[in-house]
Design a protein around this nucleic acid. Structure first.
Lengths: 197, 197
DNA sequence: ACCTTTATTAACCAAAAGGTTAAACCAAAC
DNA sequence: GTTTGGTTTAACCTTTTGGTTAATAAAGGT
């Protein structure tokens, strides 16, 4: 593993645990097992190192959303596939949601700048499709955006608020993971149940 | 307004916007319109000022959950009342959820300490009630904890991820607020729809 | 009026944290 | 073997930041 990779991985770990403001360059260097000066040799400064990490995180989260949302399947199929695939991915990267949400809140201007370009999650097509299936009579008359919000809430929230959820529901790490595994199929069933005519 | 109140309010604003690590004592002093030394005169240090703010925030969020969950009503009624009341409250305090979740992640040991005592959200009674209503045949056979997670996800997530939601769904502040108003009734209907026999 | 206590501030301090530099190291090229 | 280029480091510098102090102003009691 190259030094740059070592730094990047260390930075990912520390930033995801402490956030941008809470992360210390020294801690990242220690985590990577190299001298602090190397951080500035490979990445100009804290901001740029952070942006690299954040960009990577976001670019892992975003594109698969579009792939699924803009496919040729029915709304019900999309919901089923999305919830399943997305939870599978986040189980492997359980700190990503909270990390992205937190930094979005603390750094809106920076985040918004690249949320307007690139492969940002774009729900316009899916929204149109939902409206169509409502008129066809497949789906109850609901607001498409509310439905999207439901889907995201049910899949992302348990990870974003992981610690609180574990605390309130009294779940061990394995119990939590087990619950998320089950959620892969439960959520889609519930949502479809509540909107199908 | 007393100086202590001015400081507390300023601290609330800054901490909720920047988080503990990102908040600056000077910024809090400026926000309060007083000298920085007064912060240390009224509250011992940053940690203690933060704990006061966090405690207040958490103690506003937690108790009403118990009040509703442990009342004498049916599960459906509880869901209806909780989603409505809770969203109403959070609309007035839109930064609270993200704030609590963020600091819980960055400071688990401190938070967990008082999550184990006091008026922490305790869902045991409600879980038992759900199991009973499943056996009575009112509710489909589902896992009570998953249902609780659904309820929390649908109500809290939109606020916790507010900025992202606004960005992806292209919502102005007023549109977002409008959507949340509608959500007060939508969520309960959807959830009940998906679990009633 | 005078003293005592409580508030409030400007100036200061020490530690932490981000960032720089100049020298050492180490491979490959000649 | 020496030069040359990119790596890597220890030591250093500067700014930021949480926190203190000593002096001042205001309030209250006698």
């Amino acid at each position: 593993m190259s030094t740059e990779e070592k730094i990047f991985n260390a930075a990912r770990i520390v930033f995801q645990k402490k956030g941008f403001a809470g992360a210390r360059m020294q801690e990242i260097a220690d985590e990577a097992g190299i001298n602090k000066a190397m951080l500035h040799y490979c990445f100009k400064n804290k901001q740029q190192l952070f942006e690299a990490v954040f960009m990577k995180a976001f670019s892992q989260l975003a594109p698969q959303i579009n792939t699924i949302f803009n496919s040729e399947k029915s709304v019900f199929e999309k919901i089923t596939q999305f919830t399943h695939d997305y939870i599978s991915f986040v189980i492997e990267n359980p700190f990503l949601p909270q990390f992205v949400i937190q930094e979005m809140n603390n750094n809106p201007e920076f985040v918004m700048s690249f949320l307007n370009h690139a492969n940002r999650p774009n729900p316009t097509l899916l929204i149109a499709q939902i409206e169509k299936e409502i008129q066809t009579g497949i789906i109850k008359p609901i607001q498409p955006k509310q439905l999207l919000l439901d889907i995201f809430s049910m899949t992302v929230f348990p990870f974003a608020a992981q610690i609180m959820v574990k605390g309130i529901l009294h779940l061990s790490d394995t119990e939590f993971k087990q619950m998320m595994e089950e959620r892969k199929t439960i959520i889609a069933q519930e949502i479809i149940n509540s909107i199908k005519k």
